[in-house]
Simulated scan of single mutants.
Amino acid sequence: MNTQNDKRGQVRSNIPIGITVDVVLKKDQRTTKLTRGVVKRLLTNSAIHPRGIKVMLEDGQVGRVQAIISK
């Protein structure tokens, strides 16, 4: 498993559907608790977002990508 905790989660083109990522959920923004899941949909339309691309995970949770785990 290759955790890459860099700026790649801020670039939309780095996050294909089906990739495993760590996201911070809205309710966890103050604690920075991360949730791991598989990307179902990309919700951010812009190519780059400074706080991370917003995605929906397969279980329906929504958060901003903090780390890309595997492709």
Rank of each mutant, 00 (worst) to 15 (best):
K40N: 12
Q66P: 00
K54Y: 11
T3K: 13
D59E: 13
R12F: 04
L57P: 00
V62D: 03
P16D: 09
Q29A: 11
G18C: 06
T20I: 13
G52M: 01
S70P: 00
I17P: 03
L57R: 03
V11G: 02
N2D: 13
R64A: 04
I48R: 10
P16E: 10
G52F: 01
K26S: 12
G63M: 05
I69V: 10
I48L: 10
M1C: 06
E58R: 04
K27Y: 02
I17D: 04
K54A: 15
T20G: 02
Q29L: 10
G63R: 02
N14S: 11
I53W: 00
G60L: 01
K54C: 14
M56V: 04
I17E: 04
S13M: 06
I19K: 09
R12Y: 07
H49I: 00
Q4M: 15
D6I: 09
P16S: 13
H49F: 12
L43Q: 04
R30I: 05
V65C: 06
I15Y: 07
V11N: 08
N14H: 10
I69N: 01
I68S: 00
K54H: 11
G37H: 04
Q4E: 15
K7E: 15
V62M: 09
G18N: 06
L25D: 01
G37N: 04
E58T: 14
L25F: 05
I17F: 03
R8F: 12
H49E: 12
G37V: 07
R36Y: 06
V65F: 07
R36H: 10
P16H: 09
V23R: 00
R30T: 09
N5C: 15
L34C: 11
V65G: 02
V55W: 01
V55M: 04
D59T: 12
N45M: 08
E58F: 02
N2F: 13
K40F: 05
R41L: 11
K33T: 14
A47T: 07
N5F: 15
V21E: 06
I53D: 00
G63C: 09
K71S: 12
H49R: 12
V23M: 02
G18M: 08
K26V: 11
V62K: 11
R8P: 05
I19F: 08
L57D: 02
H49W: 11
I48K: 10
I68H: 00
I53S: 01
T44Q: 08
T35C: 13
I15C: 08
P50E: 05
L42K: 07
K27C: 06
R64C: 06
N14Q: 13
M56T: 10
G37E: 03
S46P: 00
T31V: 05
M56E: 15
K27W: 02
I48N: 11
V39D: 05
M1D: 07
R30P: 01
Q61S: 11
V11L: 14
N5V: 15
N14C: 09
